[in-house]
Design a binder for these strands. Structure first.
Lengths: 112, 112
DNA sequence: GTTCTCTATAACAAGCGTGTTCTATAACGT
DNA sequence: ACGTTATAGAACACGCTTGTTATAGAGAAC
C-alpha cells in the first residue's frame, strides 16, 4: 500500500519525451499515433513510454475504435509536488505567508 | 544556459537513497561518512550518489579538515516544482486562487 | 471473412546506472 | 616524514532502459 510510487513518478519524469507527452495530454486525450507524430522516435518506442507513464499512474487508457486513448492522471504529480513542498522553505521565504493563505484563514495586509 | 536540468533533477529524485540524502541534508550539512552511515550501501556508492546530486545542482560541497560537507541547494527543486505547477489545475481547483495570491498583489478578503 | 488501420509484443543491441572491492589521494596530527 | 582518517577513483558485474525492426493481435469497414 505504501509502495514507493515516487520512484516510478520521478523516474517517469526524468525523460524529456515523457514530460512532453504529459504536456500534450494536458490539452486532451490522444491516441498513440497522434502522440508519436511529433517525436523523432518510432511508434513502439512511444508505446513503451506510455507503458512507463501508466505504470507510474500518470496516465490511464481507454479504447475508441482501434485507437487507444491516453488520459492524463495528475494525482501522482500532486504526490511528487507534495514531496517537494517539504523544501519550499529552502528557496522561498514567501512560502510561509503562502502557506498561511492556503490554510484557509483570512489574508492579512502585507504590512502592519 | 537553457540546458534541460529537469532531466538531471528528476533523475536524481528517482532514487530513494538520494531522496533520503536530501531529506537528511535538510537538517544541516553532513560529511560523506555520516551520510553513508544509515544506508545499507558502501561509502563509494554514497559518494557516487552525491556526485549525481551535485551534477543536478541539488547539493554543493565544501571541505572541513579531511571531511567533505554536502550542502542542500534547493533551487533545482524549485524548478521541478515550477514544472509540476503547470498541472496543479488538474488536481486542485484551489490552484487558481493560489496563483492569484502568488502573483504578488495584496491579498484580498476571501469573500466580497 | 478479408482487408485495412492502429497498437502491442518479441527479439535484439547498446548505453547507462548502481552496486561491489580495492586502491589512490588529501588533509590533519604527531 | 609518517601514520591515521576521510573521501574519491578505477575496474568490474549486472540489470534496467531506450531504441531499433519485424511481426502479431484487435477492431472497423467493406
Amino acid at each position: 500500500m505504501t509502495m514507493d510510487r515516487l520512484d516510478a513518478v520521478f523516474g517517469a519524469l526524468a525523460d524529456p519525451t515523457r514530460r512532453a507527452i504529459l504536456a500534450r495530454l494536458a490539452s486532451g486525450d490522444l491516441a498513440v499515433g497522434d502522440l508519436a507524430a511529433p517525436f523523432p522516435v518510432s511508434q513502439p518506442a512511444i508505446s513503451r513510454h506510455l507503458k512507463v507513464l501508466e505504470g507510474a499512474g500518470l496516465i490511464s487508457r481507454s479504447r475508441r475504435a482501434t485507437a487507444r486513448l491516453s488520459h492524463l492522471e495528475a494525482e501522482p504529480l500532486r504526490q511528487a509536488t507534495s514531496w517537494l513542498a517539504r523544501y519550499q522553505a529552502y528557496w522561498d521565504e514567501r512560502y510561509d505567508q503562502l502557506d498561511e493563505v492556503l490554510a484557509g484563514l483570512e489574508p492579512k495586509p502585507t504590512d502592519g
